[in-house]
Design a protein around this nucleic acid. Structure first.
Length: 873
RNA sequence: GGAGGCAUAGCUCAGCUGGGAGAGCGCUUGCCUUACAAGCAAGAUGUCAUAGGUUCAAGUCCUAUUGUCUCCACCA
């Protein structure tokens, strides 16, 4: 046995992981004699560093995966990373700027070269950090969303969707980030409340007969107005419809039109229509055939359609326009106004709705079957309530803008013939135009949304579009584990992609967990600086302690508050496990243990074996339901309270006693229970269990062992109940000692009377060891005991303890009175229930029986207490 | 505007399909008892947000209210 006095995870975690990986324990075989179990990791961004969210997400997955592996499944947990198109590109661009360069200066090829260099340098960080956490990922199958396999899948899917008419190119209003200079999907826009104004502007009639007042939050878009709309039912403006207005600050005239989209009771009831810069206005424009005038370029600067404001940044233009309108007497009023403004989820710049030619995925035909499979439970969300969020999104989904004006990503496989304008979308790069034969082809510059490739992750990583062995064996995967914040971005898109391209769901279950928040309940974020670095915690407390802390008190779907002080209880618990193991192993050193089960168990042995068996049952049940917090609690309680506080103490008389046989027998039970414990908790705390396992004298790794399962051969129910009574006696004795102020070192003598004698006689050794009892005598009644005594009342007997001068009659009588009160409360409760005809008639028989028994016992107890109290008087 | 979560001990939270309120931390008291002071033992602390309802029985199910957090939509 070679274990330090305290648990020091730093000394073994890294080497144990290296050994697991080297031996290929994480790499499953395609083996049809075993059931498969597979999970694909939510691929972290290559730009990322491990944060608490990753730590939680991957701890959950690893626990499930290790449990399944030990249960005999051919288990694949497939790792990989995401190229994170925008996030990475932003990093590279920033780096270039430090050198005083723009990406256009170096060109696409050089830019991509630098991006790959960056990926090579930093993209592996998070992958190493996952190893520190202990994740049993199959690194031999590691994927990257831009590697050859995934890229092939992307191309295949894009072309197939295009041929089916599910991908099209068109001019639509999209969300444009002027900072990142790319289009964004709806999901990539976040909304923030912002204090601004509602500007009321006068639009004069062209015939000079006065003006209309329109209200707007974006006065600069006035330059692109092509109409003003009113509600057709609005009597205030009925006679104005069709009239022309002079658009302020320009030389253009625009019509007043009628459209239902305008609300009667908001603002002035007149809305300026800017089809090029507002999604609703765009729709109105289509209905009324209005011209679409773009007034801003890709960086948010006013373009040649902006008259005097050309060249101004959008913010500057707003200021100038507002002041110019004021000078011309066209500003009716300015009201302070708070409203939601869309911002880029990456850089938080205000998003500009802009008309632009982009590629879109037609969502309706894809969403329908994806809704159906959740509706009919082919896929279930855990907890179920997240299905509502999913339906809500899927049922109101709009077409997905998938083109991005970036360089880092999957370049769209579309070519335009410069001779005839033909659009060519092919799996292989075309050499000439199939229509006119021209070789003057120009490839589309744009790349795809990062999530386009993530959507294919469950099958692209397994080899799609090739029919690989992995794909056949491991697809569909069995489970997806993720936080609720990417249900739209990722989960929903994987579901419709799996159905469309594989003809099958990607996974039958989606386990949703919450977000890790700080001690105040705020999201951990860079800007707040309230994040905790999991690697720092691992360095300080060990990965096992982090994993255990993260699964303490968690329930599916709910957020957890985390602060460093949650680490100590876990670390202490692992130290406890460490030292309990030391106790067993130290004593077992050099001793020839009999085979477990080849002897008669003691009452204490049967008690712990019964409890262990029950714990095994519960832990398996909770793991099956993904109730990791509950499984964690059961393990904690069993190991600390039952095994350490009771059973280990109970074994001490045997281990430190004379009998070699008894010692060996006890040790074999200790060793058996310890090994079962190590296996049980291994999925939660893989490192410490592997480390201790090495000391247990077995060959091989614990992670290859079979997970414990419930067994009927340990159903010692009667013995278990009897031993619980022994424990109660010990507890009562300790309580009396403490209350009466008996020195811990002072041994006491006790006299037992009643039926309790039978089980106390057989367990005397435990009373002596655990309750500081020296002598035990058995008497017929209290009359046989002399001197000043305190007493303990049980249903089936009494214990008298002569304590001489330590007995304070007043104190003793108070103690007994208190006990009596609580027993009487119990009796009242029991009688109340049993006198209720409804309860006796309708409650389960066993429950009624149990209540009757308890009532009977309490009455016996009361009788004794009353008598003792009388005696004291 | 729509949807959902949460409200339990001083703090952070468990409590699964209804059947005598739990843990960790903190607090009080006593102990370095040959695995562990990162520990041991004995304690104290709760109108389970409020009001109704269903039920023999409600922290648990239903309705409403209050407080709080989140998501979706985005009316200029």
């Amino acid at each position: 046995m070679n274990m330090e006095k305290n648990f020091e995870p730093q000394s073994f975690e890294t080497s144990i992981y290296a050994e697991w990986e080297k031996n290929g324990y994480f790499t499953p075989e395609v083996d049809y004699s075993k059931p498969p179990f597979s999970i694909v990791i939510p691929p972290p961004n290559i730009t990322g560093q491990l944060h608490m969210g990753h730590a939680l997400n991957n701890t959950i997955q690893d626990i499930i995966v290790r449990h399944k592996r030990m249960q005999g499944y051919s288990t694949l947990w497939l790792p990989g990373t995401d190229h994170a198109s925008i996030a990475t590109e932003v990093k590279i661009v920033d780096k270039l700027r430090e050198e005083g360069l723009e990406k256009e200066d170096i060109g696409r090829e050089e830019f991509l070269k630098r991006a790959y260099e960056w990926k090579a340098a930093y993209g592996g960080r998070i992958v190493q950090q996952l190893r520190r956490l202990g994740c049993s990922l199959d690194w031999s199958r590691e994927a990257f969303t831009m590697d050859e396999r995934c890229s092939k899948a992307v191309r295949e899917v894009f072309v197939n969707l295009y041929r089916k008419g599910l991908i099209y190119r068109g001019s639509r209003i999209i969300n444009w980030c002027p900072h990142c200079r790319t289009a964004l999907s709806d999901a990539e826009v976040e909304y923030e409340p912002q204090k601004s104004n509602l500007w009321h502007i006068r639009y004069p009639y062209a015939d000079g007969s006065g003006y209309m007042v329109i209200a707007t939050t974006r006065p600069e878009t006035l330059l692109g107005d092509t109409a003003v709309a009113v509600n057709p039912k609005d009597s205030r403006y009925a006679d104005k419809i069709g009239k022309m207005l002079k658009l302020p600050l320009t030389d253009r005239e625009i019509p007043v039109i009628a459209d239902d989209y305008v609300e009667l009771d908001f603002g002035t009831g007149c809305v300026k229509i800017t089809p090029a810069h507002d999604p609703n206005d765009f729709e109105v424009g289509l209905r009324h055939n209005l011209p679409v005038i773009r007034i801003m370029d890709d960086s948010g600067v006013i373009n040649e359609n902006g008259y005097a404001y050309k060249g101004l940044d959008r913010d500057e233009a707003r200021k100038r326009i507002v002041s110019d309108l004021g000078e011309q007497g066209l500003m009716e009023k300015i009201e302070p106004y708070e409203h939601n403004v869309g911002v880029c989820y990456r850089c938080h710049s205000t998003v500009e709705p802009i008309v632009s030619k982009q590629w879109f995925v037609r969502m309706e035909p894809l969403a329908k079957p994806a809704i159906k499979v959740v509706r009919n439970k082919k896929i279930s969300f855990i907890p179920e309530r997240f299905e509502k969020i999913y339906f809500n999104w899927m049922e109101n989904i709009r077409d997905w803008c998938v083109s991005r004006q970036l360089w880092w990503g999957h370049q769209i496989p579309a070519w335009y013939c410069e001779e005839c304008g033909e659009v060519i979308v092919e799996k292989h790069d075309p050499e000439k135009c199939p229509k006119c034969g021209s070789v003057r082809l120009k490839r589309d510059e744009d790349v795809l949304d990062t999530w386009f490739s993530s959507a294919l992750w469950p099958f692209s990583t397994l080899g799609y579009p090739d029919e690989t062995e992995d794909l056949k064996y491991f697809y569909p995967t069995n489970l997806l584990v993720t936080a609720y914040d990417i249900i739209f971005f990722w989960v929903a898109r994987m579901i419709f992609s799996g159905l469309e391209h594989m003809g099958e769901i990607p996974f039958p279950e989606v386990l949703i967990h919450g977000i890790v928040r700080d001690a105040e309940g705020r999201k951990m974020s860079k800007s707040l600086g309230n994040g905790i670095d999991p690697i720092m915690l691992i360095d300080k407390y060990g990965a096992d302690a982090l994993r255990f802390s993260l699964t303490t008190g968690v329930a599916p779907g709910s957020d957890i508050r985390f602060s460093e002080d949650k680490m100590e209880p876990s670390r202490n618990f692992l130290n406890k496990l460490w030292n309990a193991s030391r106790y067993v192993l130290m004593n077992a050193d050099g001793i020839n243990l009999p085979e477990f089960g080849s002897f008669n168990y003691s009452s204490a042995d049967k008690w712990i074996l019964y409890k262990l068996n029950r714990t095994v049952k519960e832990v398996n049940a909770y793991l099956k339901k993904y109730e990791l917090g509950m499984a964690n609690a059961k393990l904690y309680d069993f190991i600390w309270s039952d095994f350490c506080d009771w059973y280990i103490e109970l074994t001490k008389p045997a281990l430190y006693g004379e009998s070699v046989n008894e010692k060996a027998r006890t040790l074999s039970v200790l060793m058996y229970v310890l090994k079962q414990i190590l296996k049980l908790i291994h999925p939660f705390t893989p490192f410490i269990t592997e480390r201790i396992w090495k000391e247990c004298g077995d060959v091989g790794a614990i992670m290859l062992e079979t997970y414990p399962s419930y067994s009927k051969k340990f159903l010692f129910t009667a013995e278990f109940r009897r031993f619980e009574k022994v424990k109660d006696v010990i507890r009562s004795l300790r309580n009396v000692r403490a209350e009466m102020g008996v020195q811990p070192s002072k041994k006491i003598g006790v006299s037992v009377c009643g039926e309790a004698e039978s089980y106390i006689r057989r367990n005397e050794v435990y009373l002596k060891k655990l309750a500081g009892v020296e002598t035990i005598s058995y008497v017929k009644s209290k009359a046989d005991v002399s001197g000043k005594i305190v007493s303990i009342a049980m249903a089936d007997g009494e214990i008298f303890i002569p304590l001489g001068d330590l007995v304070d009659f007043k104190k003793e009588s108070e103690r007994l009175e208190k006990e009596l009160r609580s027993v009487e409360n119990e009796i009242r409760r029991g009688e109340g229930m049993l006198s209720n005809a409804g309860f006796v008639a309708k409650a389960p028989e066993a429950l009624v029986e149990q209540e009757r028994r308890k009532l009977e016992e309490n009455k016996l107890k009361r009788e004794k207490l009353v008598k003792r109290i009388e005696d004291l008087k």
